[in-house]
C-alpha cells in the first residue's frame, strides 16, 4: 500500500499530463486568449515565456479542447531537420505519408495549401519551437502566407528573438502572448488543487502560509521549480514517515525544516 506522502509526491511529477492540468487564474486568461485568437484570421501566434511557466501543458490543453472543433496538429517534439519537419507537415496537410525515397517538394506543398484555402483551416501547435532552425521558420512563414495553415508557436523567452523581430516575420505574427510565473496566491491554489485531486486534503491543509511563503521564495512561482520542490519535500516526508514515524505523526503543518532541506537538496540555498 502506498504511503500517503508517496501519493503526494506523485502529484508533482513533472510531466505534461493533461489529466494533471490545474487551471488557475493566469493560465485561464491565456487559455481564453488563445481560444479567441484561433477564431480570427491569424497566421502566427507566438506563445512565449521562461522555462517552467506552463507553455507546453497549455498548448496540450488547447489541443485537447479544440481538436474536435478544428483541424489541429500538435508537434510536441521539434523535428531534428528541415526534411523531417516537412514530412510531418506533408502528412498532416495531405493526410498521406510522403514518399520515403524522395524529399518533400516544398513548392508543391505550398501550392497545395493555396489550393485548399477556404476549404480547410489547419492549425499547427509547435512546442519548443526555439529548437527549430532558422530555415524551418522561413518555411513556416511561407506556408502561413497561404492562409490555409496557421501556427501557434511556443518558445522560450528571448530565443529566436532576432528572427521574430524582423519585419517580414513580425508582420505575420497576429499576437504575442507571454506566460509569466504565477503569483504566491496562485501557487498556493496550484499546490492545494494538486493535492486535493489526489484526495490528500489533510496534507493540503497541513501546508500553512509560512510554508507557502518559503516555497514561493525558493521557486519564484515557476511551475517546474514548484513541482521539483514539492516532490522533494514529500520524498523527505516519506522517508521520515517510514523510518521515523513519530516525527510525522499527527503533524499539523509541514515543518519549514523539511522545506529548507529540500531547498538545500535542490540547490536553492547553500549550507
Amino acid at each position: 500500500m502506498k504511503n500517503r506522502f508517496q501519493i503526494a509526491k506523485s502529484a508533482f511529477v513533472d510531466a505534461i499530463d493533461i489529466n494533471e492540468y490545474i487551471e488557475i487564474g493566469s493560465s485561464y486568461m491565456v487559455m481564453t486568449q488563445l481560444e479567441n485568437v484561433i477564431q480570427k484570421p491569424f497566421k502566427m501566434v507566438i506563445l512565449f515565456g521562461r522555462p517552467g511557466t506552463g507553455k507546453s501543458i497549455l498548448l496540450k490543453n488547447l489541443f485537447e479542447q479544440i481538436k474536435n472543433q478544428k483541424e489541429m496538429h500538435l508537434f510536441e517534439t521539434p523535428s531534428s531537420n528541415k526534411q523531417e519537419f516537412l514530412r510531418q507537415l506533408f502528412k498532416a496537410i495531405k493526410k498521406e505519408d510522403s514518399p520515403l525515397d524522395a524529399d518533400v517538394d516544398f513548392v508543391d506543398l505550398v501550392n497545395y495549401c493555396k489550393s485548399i484555402k477556404d476549404q480547410r483551416e489547419i492549425i499547427f501547435l509547435l512546442d519548443e519551437a526555439q529548437m527549430y532552425a532558422i530555415d524551418i521558420f522561413e518555411k513556416i512563414r511561407l506556408i502561413s502566407d497561404t492562409n490555409a495553415v496557421k501556427f501557434i508557436i511556443s518558445l522560450h523567452q528571448h530565443e529566436k528573438e532576432e528572427l521574430l523581430t524582423q519585419t517580414h516575420f513580425s508582420s505575420r505574427i497576429w499576437e504575442r502572448i507571454e506566460l509569466k510565473n504565477i503569483t504566491p496566491q496562485e501557487q498556493a491554489i496550484y499546490i492545494h488543487k494538486k493535492l486535493s485531486n489526489k484526495n490528500l486534503i489533510d496534507i493540503a491543509n497541513s501546508i500553512k502560509d509560512k510554508n507557502l511563503k518559503l516555497i514561493y521564495k525558493y521557486t519564484n512561482g515557476n511551475y517546474r521549480e514548484c513541482n521539483k520542490l514539492m516532490f522533494t519535500i514529500f520524498e523527505i516526508c516519506e522517508y521520515y514517515d517510514r523510518y521515523n514515524p513519530l516525527k510525522m505523526m499527527n503533524i499539523n503543518s509541514i515543518p519549514n525544516k523539511i522545506i529548507e532541506m529540500a531547498g538545500l537538496k535542490l540547490g536553492y540555498i547553500n549550507a
Binding site: T232, E235, I236, E238, Y239, Y240, Y243, K257, E260, M261, L264, K265, I269, N270, A271
Partner: peptide, 18 residues
C-alpha cells in the same frame, strides 16, 4: 531516496549560516 542524514547535517550548517 536522498541521504537524509547528510541533508540534516547540511540543514544544521545552513541554520548556523542563516
Amino acid at each position: 531516496m536522498h541521504n537524509i542524514e547528510l541533508l540534516e547535517k547540511q540543514w544544521k550548517r545552513y541554520q548556523i549560516k542563516k
